[in-house]
């Protein structure tokens, strides 16, 4: 049975296919939704419920877990950190070691897939009396989303997405290549921007959809759109849109996925998802110049 919370915040956050019910078991943790504040509404049916609890501790205990994968923040990050994904039986651990965060020294969260619980222990920084965090605080929230998305056979991708009439289009590229710019161009033509940086892709019935996710620096309400077309974008002196075919198209799309896979079965399932998307959704190579002409060019495409 779950431990009775001392400081129940009653905060619920919905992600595609998931309902996360947050509580704090230590009085010195305060959950203050920022980027996730509007994600209290569900866009999907039949969500799987996970109970997420936060508590404080003097030191984290990762004994019994083995390291699966690790990484670190990008150079120049405001708050540098190292993240590690660990495993033990039905459990996945997420360890974050902050270099120089004012509130937190370390975090160790354990996702137990047999109990549908996520318990995170937070180590406060020196002299910190109260920890105030978004329920999906960075980078714990992002790594958690990566693990949960994979668990339910979804895909996270660095991409912007727009909805225009009933058509959803995804624009993916490496950072700094124009995802936000492209989304901005479509917005100026009346389209709804689902998100301009990261999308969560989920198959519902036999169709793929794209969703936004909570982001740390801006509050957006949850949005979704069908995934009708995928564009691999690059800036170019002229607009040039070419349909790609076969495995080359699928792999170029996959290259911009957010993918941290630490076993063979996991990697195989991800490949299956990517190939399924590529077999269903047309993928285009898209060079574009900074003008609204690209909207008309793309709208004029015929399969």
């Amino acid at each position: 049975m779950r431990e009775e919370s001392k400081n129940t915040e009653g905060i619920v956050i919905f992600l595609p296919g998931l309902k996360l019910d947050f509580s704090c078991t230590s009085a010195d943790v305060k959950l203050v939704p920022l980027g996730s504040s509007l994600f209290n509404d569900s866009l999907t049916e039949g969500n799987q419920l996970f109970h997420v609890s936060y508590s404080t501790t003097e030191s984290v205990d990762t004994s019994g877990f083995s390291r699966a994968l690790s990484g670190e923040s990008f150079p120049g990050a405001e708050i540098p950190y190292t993240w590690t994904i660990l495993r033990k039986d039905h459990q996945v651990g997420i360890h974050i070691d902050f270099d120089d965060d004012l509130q937190l020294e370390e975090v160790f969260g354990v996702i137990d897939f047999s109990q549908n619980t996520i318990s995170a222990a937070l180590v406060p920084g020196d002299g910190v009396q109260e920890i105030s965090i978004d329920p999906l605080f960075q980078p714990f929230g992002s790594v958690l989303m990566v693990v949960l998305a994979h668990y339910q056979d979804d895909v996270l991708v660095h991409a912007s997405g727009v909805l225009e009439n009933v058509k959803g289009r995804l624009f993916t590229a490496v950072s700094g290549t124009g995802k936000s710019t492209m989304a901005g161009i479509w917005k100026s033509e009346g389209a709804t921007v689902i998100n301009d940086d990261r999308l969560w892709l989920r198959k519902i019935g036999d169709r793929w959809y794209m969703f936004n996710t909570p982001m740390p620096y801006y509050a957006q309400k949850p949005l979704m759109a069908p995934l009708n077309e995928i564009f691999l974008i690059r800036q170019s002196p002229d607009n040039e849109v070419t349909k790609l075919a076969g495995i080359n198209a699928a792999m170029r799309f996959m290259a911009n996925g957010i993918q941290h896979f630490y076993d063979k079965e996991m990697t195989g399932r991800h490949l299956d998802r990517i190939l399924d998307i590529a077999s269903q959704v047309p993928i285009y190579d898209c060079g574009f110049k900074l003008s609204n002409d690209i909207v008309r060019e793309i709208k004029g495409l015929r399969d």
Binding site: A68, L69, I247, N248, M251, M254, A255, G257, Q259, F261, Y262, D263, K264, M266, T267, H270
Partner: peptide, 11 residues
């Protein structure tokens, strides 16, 4: 070491 190297995919 069981970790997928998504940067060296072969087609």
């Amino acid at each position: 070491d069981k970790v997928a190297d998504m940067t060296s995919v072969l087609t």
